[in-house]
Design a protein around this nucleic acid. Structure first.
Lengths: 246, 246
DNA sequence: GTCTATAACCGGATAGAC
DNA sequence: GTCTATCCGGTTATAGAC
């Protein structure tokens, strides 16, 4: 498979969004397979769902399923788009209502927990590849750039739309930091078996508070050197994500 | 397979350490399989190494390999023990020599990068399961408790053996924090393709410096509330790791 | 009861005909 | 774009040897 073809098949958020109303024949078949897969994953889990079963449920042959999706893992890509879209929708009223940074961030993160709940079971698989630099599914990989940027863009809205005063140099990097914070929370959430994900929610509240305090402390002239080195650190990490081969 | 049997096979660091000088017949066979596997993983990568090939290289049948190792993944457990032992050995002179917290930490982390280098390629697999709560291979899982505790114990030596003054309540939790810091660095290292892992080394230097500054800032009475909530946060996370089912 | 081997099974992935 | 037939490799069942 060449690169163009792979690009066409992967990670196209816009395409995934309108899968329901797709018109072309191929598009429809593709959507049928994806929907069948997501439903089966949710019901029986990822491992227990076989490609043969997915194909059967979608009313296509096994080989045909592989014509549309490079591998079983690639079926998962559909999730990124789906869950992010749902999260985004849930965030709109919060972002419209709240004006303080803390409350905006808190609301957005709790909304994440709410909307991700139905996918808790299979999300482990999603992040399984987080550490694998080879995997196109890793949230840190080049293949996931668009999804990652969408998530960071949401955090930028959280910051930019708030009335809370944030030093400019920090405000620029804050969205990326908050995205990292969100990734860490998701990792915690994956392991969280408490009722209603109470533990993750508590952790969200505490860390959000901490973020707020750190942001306000960062304005003190006394901690200028600390702040500077922190910001340089972020630039370092960003450089790595953007061009991992140097 | 019952639980006892699984325990016998898994995660026994002491057993793995003396595999070289094992006496029993079974032990020797076990060691032969593990050594063959690790060598093949290093040479050809994890995916490309088949269980059939491992068995062949070890001079046993396929079924026999499965008698000793529950699954292909479980062969990886050998790594945790092996790499930690090597890291520990490399740390001894550093811990004997350095007295400042910063230098001790810096040395220990650079030693990690040095000793882990031969395993860079296959380490992705190791951490692939980090996010999977089901996987016994996850460094956060109950099955990895002993390995995790070994790593935290090393960080405790870093802290306790230093002359740097650290407030007591912080000193207690610092080892766990430093272990988390190490995990994050390893995640970065996995994606690092720079020559000599220069980027990870730079990141180590910068973050270590940051840690030092944060520790010293933490002593100021002005940031007492910030420190308190941070420490409570750590207790929260610790509770989750220790008893994930409540 | 400890160890070893052979023969299957199952499911992800691919080749190639239509 | 869709199918059938097949490969390949992780895993398991099971029978026997020490």
């Amino acid at each position: 498979m060449n690169v163009d073809e792979r690009d066409r098949r992967l990670s196209d958020v816009a395409r995934a969004k309108k899968s329901a109303e797709a018109t072309g024949k191929g598009e429809r078949t593709r959507a049928r397979i994806l929907d069948a897969a997501l439903a089966l994953f949710q019901e029986h889990g990822y491992e227990a769902t076989t490609m043969r079963r997915v194909a059967e449920a979608a009313g296509v042959s096994l080989g045909n399923a592989y014509y549309y999706f490079e591998s079983k893992e690639h079926l998962i890509q559909g999730f990124y788009a789906k869950t992010h879209a749902e999260h985004l929708a849930a965030c709109e009223p919060i972002l419209a209502r709240e004006t303080e940074l803390v409350e905006r961030l808190r609301g957005v993160l709790h909304a994440k927990i709410d909307t991700a709940e139905p996918y808790h079971r299979i999300s482990g698989i999603l992040f399984k590849s987080a550490a694998d630099p080879e995997s196109p599914l890793s949230p840190f990989s080049a293949a996931s750039t668009s999804v990652r940027n969408d998530a960071i863009a949401l955090m930028r809205r959280v910051v930019d739309g708030s009335k809370t005063r944030v030093p400019q140099d920090l405000a620029e990097r804050l969205p990326e930091l908050l995205w990292l914070h969100e990734m860490a929370l998701i990792l915690f959430w994956l392991h969280d078996r408490s009722a209603g994900r109470a533990r993750t929610r508590r952790l969200v509240d505490r860390t959000v508070e901490l973020v707020a305090k750190l942001v306000s402390v960062a304005s003190f002239p006394l901690v200028k050197p600390l702040r500077t080195s922190t910001l340089e650190l972020i630039d370092e990490i960003r450089a790595d994500v953007d061009s991992p081969n140097e």
